[in-house]
Structures are given as C-alpha cells and as structure tokens.
C-alpha cells in the first residue's frame, strides 16, 4: 500500500557543508517520480533524507519536514528503524552481504526483522527474485554466495532484497547504472508493476529512462560549485520533457548544459 510523501523546507548538511537547501515537493502514492540533475547537485542526498539514511553518515543533519501520509519522519519519537522498514532503498553500487548466500540475501530483511516459516520464506524469496528478473539465473544456486554473481545480477539481487520486505515506498539511486539493456528493461517493467502497489522514487542520469518510467520528474541543480543543490522544478514528465517552465531544465534536457 503506497503512501504519499510530502516534503517541505528540507535542508541537509554534511557537517557544516550545506548539500541541499529548502526543498519542497509532493510525491503521489502509486506513482513513479524521477530525479534528474547534474552530478553533485544533491539527488542522492535528498533521496537518503527520505528514509533517514542521511543521518547515518558522520555529520549528516537534516532540517525541515518529510511527511509520510501526514506523519513527520523527523518528528519527535519517530524510530528511524521503522521508517526504513517502510521506505526501502536500492543503492547505486550493488552491495549484497558477502557472508550470505543468494537466498539469505533476499531473505535478510525478513529474517533480521523477525522469524518466518521456511515455506513462507521460500515463497517470498522466489517471488522477489522473479520480480527482479533474476530467478531463472540463480534458481539452481540459491545457496551460493551472493558476491559470486555478476555486477548486474548483484544489483537485481539487491532489488529483490529490497522488495522482499514489501516497503510502502521504494527509493532507487541509479539502480540501472550497472545493468545491461535487457535487465534495465526488466527493471523498468518491474517499476511499472511495482507502482501499482508502491510509491517509487528513482534517481537517474538516463533521460530516456526518466521519460519511460516516470509519471513526474524533478529537476535539481546547483548555482555553482560549493553551493547547495536546489529543486528547480517538478512537474508531469511529459511537460518537463516537452515544455518545461524553467529555461535551465530545458537546457539540461536538451544537452545544452554548462
């Protein structure tokens, strides 16, 4: 069951360095929102504030509000661990747990959070691996280590791991940058399926991908190196790619940037 994300006045720091400033946006439930923008403008940082992963980095600090269905993730008394169970994440670089088998990697989120019956786990693992388009490649070696897979396979394993816990929101930071075109397509199809149930936010450097998968697109930019990144505009993907309201967006999309 998807949830709406409502961000208002969000600023994030690394120590004294302000990485992003005063970002406000709404992400509708059961939709895909793409973040685009030049490197270093704070897309990853912003994404990580949405499940309180930002504060995990040393010196990470956040001001502002992130409402998940009317509940402020940064409100007093909120447990970041519970937040992360509801807002899952796929990282840019595949990071399977090296000590665990493929099966255990997918089951990790479930196992580490509670106890499950073996048959139940089998079902979930199979469904998640199928969802991530990996099942056929690994079904005969579920007990082999996850680190023995190729880079693209590892990334799909990480996606399977993230969707296995059925989060409300799925954050993806350039999830396809390590994938071949077929797996990328599979992931994009998967995103299309997942958005029926989940809210999805995806960071991508691939304009076609943003255009293909997303309903809405947000463009981030920074005024100059060392300045904090800002949200320039967010709108329906079609409008952003055909008729954006800000000149900088058009420049970026059409490659006339810098």
């Amino acid at each position: 069951m998807a949830k709406r994300i409502d961000v208002s006045g969000l600023t994030a720091y690394y120590g004294s360095h302000k990485a992003i400033e005063d970002i406000s946006m709404t992400v509708e439930p059961r939709s895909v929102t793409a973040f685009i923008g030049p490197s270093g403008c704070g897309k990853s940082t912003f994404l990580r504030t949405l499940n309180r992963m930002h504060e995990v980095t040393a010196g990470g600090r956040v001001e502002g509000k992130v409402l998940l269905d009317d509940e402020d993730l940064y409100g007093t008394g909120i447990d970041p661990v519970s937040v992360r169970r509801e807002v899952g994440m796929v990282f840019q670089r595949p990071n399977p747990f090296p000590t665990m088998s493929i099966f255990d990697n997918v089951a990790a989120g479930l196992r580490l959070n509670g106890s499950y019956k073996k048959s139940e786990l089998n079902d979930i693992v199979e469904r998640s691996l199928k969802g991530a388009n990996l099942w056929n490649e690994v079904k005969d070696r579920l007990n082999k280590p996850g680190s023995g897979l190729s880079g693209g396979q590892q990334q799909r394993l990480c996606i399977a791991r993230a969707i296995a816990v059925e989060p409300n929101v799925l954050l993806m930071d350039e999830p396809c940058s390590a994938l071949d075109p077929i797996s990328t397509l599979a992931i994009e199809d998967l995103i299309g399926e997942l958005k029926e149930r989940f809210t999805i936010v995806i960071v991508t450097h691939n304009m076609q991908q943003a255009a293909r998968v997303s309903d809405r697109t947000a463009f981030f930019n920074l005024a100059a190196v060392g300045q904090p990144g800002k949200l320039i505009e967010i709108d329906d993907t079609e409008r952003i790619f055909s008729n954006p309201s800000v000149q900088a967006t058009e420049d970026y999309i059409s490659g006339r940037f810098g």
Partner: peptide
C-alpha cells in the same frame, strides 16, 4: 567492513544492533 553493507542492512529497516550482530560481525 565496508560502510555500504551497514547501509544496506539499515535501509532494510534492520535495527543497528542486529545489523552489527548479523552483518558486520559475520563479515
């Protein structure tokens, strides 16, 4: 132990102490 592993576990909503016991220590 690479930080990415801790983050991967935390992002699954695993509490810190279990992350340490089940991911960091085994690694």
């Amino acid at each position: 132990v690479p930080n990415e592993l801790r983050e991967a576990s935390l992002a699954l909503g695993v509490p810190k102490w279990r992350t340490i016991l089940k991911v960091v220590l085994p690694t």
